[in-house]
Amino acid sequence: MDILTVQELQSKDEVLSAFSVMKQLRTHLDEEAYLDLVVDAQKHDRYKMAALLRGTDIVAVVGFKPMTTLYYGRFVWVCDLVTDEGERSKGYGEKLLAYVHNWARANDFGSVALSSGLQRAAAHRFYEEKMGYEKSSYVFKVSLS
């Protein structure tokens, strides 16, 4: 049986090691843009990235950040959650969300929230049925370029 571990990714090399998995979710990013964004978010926005490893292989990645708003109070926002395409439906997303939930509790954050693209029906079933998340709002976006 393979041992699964969660590792926070902090150095540039660690962050780069997760690119091939994260690219499956953030297909618009090349390696350089990905690294620039993660480093900037870690430095300025308290962004954290963690990988689920089976042995030394990254099988899933989560990116999250602690936030405070008037609506949610102190909460953790899950920015990114992806399991490697060949490793899906093995409970890896659940393990990483449990890691985020535990991190939030340990750091006195009262809830965890995320958004998910409208087209991702399977992900929505996972969040609602498996993880107990509730739909609480729509997210709206406008491009300023």
Results as ranks from 00 to 15, higher is better:
Leu25Phe: 06
Arg125His: 14
Arg54Leu: 10
Gly86Tyr: 02
His44Ser: 09
Glu94Ser: 13
Asp84Asn: 04
Gly110Phe: 04
Val112Ile: 11
Tyr72Asp: 14
Asp2Gly: 10
Asp57Ser: 07
Leu4Lys: 01
Tyr47Met: 11
Leu52Trp: 00
Lys43Glu: 14
Arg74His: 14
Ala98Asp: 00
Ala122Glu: 13
Ser115Asp: 15
Gly110Asn: 10
Val38Thr: 10
Tyr71Glu: 15
Arg74Asp: 15
His44Pro: 06
Met1Leu: 10
Ser143His: 13
Phe109Tyr: 15
Ser111Met: 10
Ala18Asp: 04
Thr27Gln: 15
Asp108Trp: 07
Asp40Leu: 01
Ser143Leu: 14
Glu31Asn: 04
Leu118Ser: 08
Ser116Trp: 07
Leu118Met: 13
His101Glu: 03
Tyr47Lys: 13
Ala18Gly: 06
Ser11Asp: 09
Gln10Leu: 14
Gly110Thr: 12
Gln119His: 07
Gly55Trp: 06
Asp45Met: 04
Val38Asp: 01
Phe109Arg: 12
Val142Asn: 05
Leu52Ile: 06
Ala123Phe: 07
Val142Asp: 04
Ser137Phe: 06
Asp2Lys: 12
Val38Ser: 02
Leu114Ile: 08
Ala98Gln: 00
Lys65Asn: 15
Ala106Asp: 05
Lys141Arg: 13
Glu128Asn: 12
Asp13Leu: 11
Gly132Asn: 00
Arg54Cys: 14
Gly86Ile: 01
Leu53Tyr: 13
Ala121Cys: 01
Gln7Ile: 14
Tyr34Asp: 02
Ala121Asn: 01
Gln119Leu: 02
Pro66Leu: 11
Asp36Arg: 12
Val39Cys: 01
